[in-house]
Design a protein around this nucleic acid. Sequence first.
DNA 1: ACCTGAACACCGTTCAAGT
DNA 2: ACCTGAACACCGTTCAAGT
Lengths: 202, 202
Amino acid sequence: MTSDDIPRPGPQRAMRADVRRNRARLLAAAREMFERDGAGASLEAVARLAGVGIGTLYRHFPTRQDLLEALLADVYDGLAATGRELLVSPAPGEALTTWLRAFIVRITAFPGMAAAAAVSLRPEQPGRPEPSGARRAVRDAGEALFRRAQDAGDVPADAEFADALRLAGAIAMVTERDPEAADRLLALAAAGLAPGKGAHGG
Amino acid sequence: MTSDDIPRPGPQRAMRADVRRNRARLLAAAREMFERDGAGASLEAVARLAGVGIGTLYRHFPTRQDLLEALLADVYDGLAATGRELLVSPAPGEALTTWLRAFIVRITAFPGMAAAAAVSLRPEQPGRPEPSGARRAVRDAGEALFRRAQDAGDVPADAEFADALRLAGAIAMVTERDPEAADRLLALAAAGLAPGKGAHGG
DNA sequence: ACCTGAACACCGTTCAAGT
DNA sequence: ACCTGAACACCGTTCAAGT
């Protein structure tokens, strides 16, 4: 369990390269098929496009969600980088909403991707494995922006980052590939649908 | 096309009763199967449970979404009634959020129902038929509550009801059968994630 | 150790035959 | 006019055989 992905260095190097190439081809093919047909695209078609057997696809990605999360990992890494950049911007509240907007845009690269993201970003559960590096990275970067906005008084003191991220994910799911609608919903949630009711006790 | 559902009164009365009974049985069976297995439950199993052939299911409901919308129609009618009752409550803003909370709870009777509701409540599109009576009723009742809250100054003047409803639908989709999470997200969206930025131009 | 693809299972959908 | 269910099509998933 500890060194599972470093299987004995030496003469097997060529093999490992094949495996990696297959994995990369599968990811590229999946991205292409999913962008064409959505996240429900035929996995057989993905394997065919990648030039490997269907069994190889299943060996690398036992479930469709695994394949989707591998694609999401790149998105998450990019969002983490964007988040770190925004951390030095002068307006904490704006920086947060800018980042949430980027989050929504990038997890809607194809229909169904946002739903997969919502699953992958669900609160930690007993059954599920530790969050991957990319998942932790995106969460940490977003949380840093969130806390800074909270410290600046731009975000209610009793709000929680996990909820804000879920809300953004929800907006992404429902507006999917309509960025203008996503912007409107995010602006509405940011300003408050029914503000000023003193709902926050601190 | 005009009198499609009133096919010649007279000796056919008994037949029509059979058709209606089949329809009612299919809806009851669908509700039961969907509550057990989610909105993706086997349609063959639904037909079996209803005691009719699979062809009869397809005759009544050509697509899965049609079946889901038939179940949603009851929910919509109930929500419309609730909305009319809330219209006389003394606190317009609270009445709106109370109704939105009821909306979220009732469109999550089973996994996948909220997604079907989000589809059925999408902004009118060229291809899709006129909204059904129930859809119009729920929209009208919600909009009345929304306008009243807006007039009272509880809701931003430039906000749109359609967006508020989509936002509630989005929250329902992502929290599905977790009412506490839904409450937290709705409270966050109601109070405003990053309020006070003067985002509203009026 | 990894890959292939035939084989199996399952389900959605249609439509010819029946009442 | 409506219903039935066999037949077809399609896809996900596994696993024995191959390299």
